[in-house]
Simulated scan of single mutants.
Amino acid sequence: MSKQQVAEETRTSPQDARASHDPPAIELHGVVKEFRSHGEVVTAVRDLHIAIAEGEFFSLLGPSGCGKTTTMRIVAGFEEPTAGTVYLHGTDVTNVPPHKRDVNMVFQSYALFPHMTVFDNVAFGLRRKNTPKKEVTDRVTDILGVVGLDGYAKRRPRQLSGGQQQRVALARALVNRPRALLLDEPLGALDLKLRQAMQIELKRIQREVGITFVYVTHDQGEALTMSDRIAVMNEGVIEQLAAPRDIYEHPKTRFVAGFIGTSNLLSGTVTSTDPATDGAVIDLGADGGRIIVPAAGKRPGDELEITVRPEKITLVADVAHAADVAPPAPAGQHDCALRGTVAEVVYLGTSTNYNVTTSAGAEVVVYSQNSANDASGPQRGEQVWLHWDSANSYAIGNTQ
């Protein structure tokens, strides 16, 4: 799959995101952003097309430098696109300054006023707008309840934990009732346990207030946990835009397969086709095994790249090899099977991870869930067979 094909697939209409005739909450049409660095032009965002529905939790996910924060800053109005158009609720805001856009932004640095109480921090924006005093009190009290900070109104930031400070920053943004909230890696400063707890809280808060959240992160776990849809970015383009399950289970490119979770990338030459599944078969012979992958249109001689997730694979001791007899056939007619040698065993409590080197020289990772009835599994140096259902093999594109 070429980058052009991937880009075409990400030109998502609001109807694709939500069954609604309303305009998208946020829409980017053909957005490009270029910077000049030492006389050279650097393209941070390339021909971006995104439609984010009203009330959606949408994540921009990718490594540092992929263009996700630049994209968010364009939505907020802090960066002007080199080309393209930005729409908020159907209105062109490409040239509208940030303070006139009905969005608020929360950063990794909470930027709370240390000399102010929690109440005063949250009320700051409302008071700047000369909101009536009673309304300020009512709205601040309500939003502190939503973010779980009842009883904290009189405290100062230094008296709060990192997670509580993050909630104050969130309340300060939400109290202004923006139609969309932009969050730029807001959990990055928290420790792992607190970050995981806040992921659940953020999703709960988003559901409760019912506004659009656009979340920038490099953490795949955050994106998978909270998002309705995820745009996986790489080098300024969207490689895949879909629901979390679709992105994890059906990665469209090599980059997505490698960036989202752990994925085994295998390659080979198609030797035949399987009429029953319309799949392509890579046969490595009796000593190597075979892979079947749904790949309509592939023919013998075609090169194919495949991904399979570690938890989809079952590891079976190679009894036949130990007995010096013919190896067993795959467990089912359409199963995949590869022969290999265990190179490493890592016990992780809830699971055991196996690194296996196949007879063809590929490195494969297998996750095996531990249970109370588990006997001792294969050890380093032992011969094994790797089995998985062909439905869990996916042909991917070669986009880097």
Rank of each mutant, 00 (worst) to 15 (best):
N95L: 13
D184N: 09
T253K: 09
P244A: 04
Q220W: 05
Q383P: 09
A326Y: 10
G289I: 12
E27G: 07
D150S: 13
N264P: 05
D142G: 12
S59I: 02
I292H: 02
N130A: 13
V345K: 14
E235V: 12
D184T: 03
P186D: 07
T82C: 07
R195W: 07
G288T: 04
P97G: 00
L187W: 06
V136S: 01
Q4R: 13
P186C: 06
E344C: 08
A189H: 15
G381M: 04
A169N: 02
V175P: 11
S351L: 15
Q400Y: 14
R172K: 03
P63A: 07
L181N: 08
V270Q: 08
R155L: 12
P244G: 03
L348F: 10
G377F: 07
K298W: 12
I50S: 12
R11Y: 04
K312D: 15
V209Q: 08
P300Y: 02
Y354M: 12
T350V: 15
R195D: 06
I238V: 10
A83C: 06
M198H: 12
Q400W: 15
A51H: 05
D302T: 11
K68V: 03
Q379P: 04
E363C: 13
F35S: 04
L181Y: 03
H21S: 15
H387M: 01
R207K: 14
L182D: 03
V214M: 04
G162R: 06
L160H: 02
G65K: 05
P327H: 03
S59T: 13
V214K: 01
S351Q: 14
Q240M: 01
G349P: 07
E56V: 09
L224W: 01
P81H: 04
G145S: 09
D324H: 15
S351T: 15
L190Y: 08
S267Y: 11
D283V: 07
G39I: 10
S368C: 12
V96M: 06
E303H: 15
V232R: 00
L265F: 11
G332Y: 14
V6M: 15
G285L: 12
T12L: 13
G261W: 01
F213Y: 07
L338M: 08
I282E: 02
L187N: 05
G381N: 06
S371P: 01
V175T: 08
L181F: 11
A19C: 10
A171T: 07
K134F: 09
A337C: 14
G151P: 07
D318G: 09
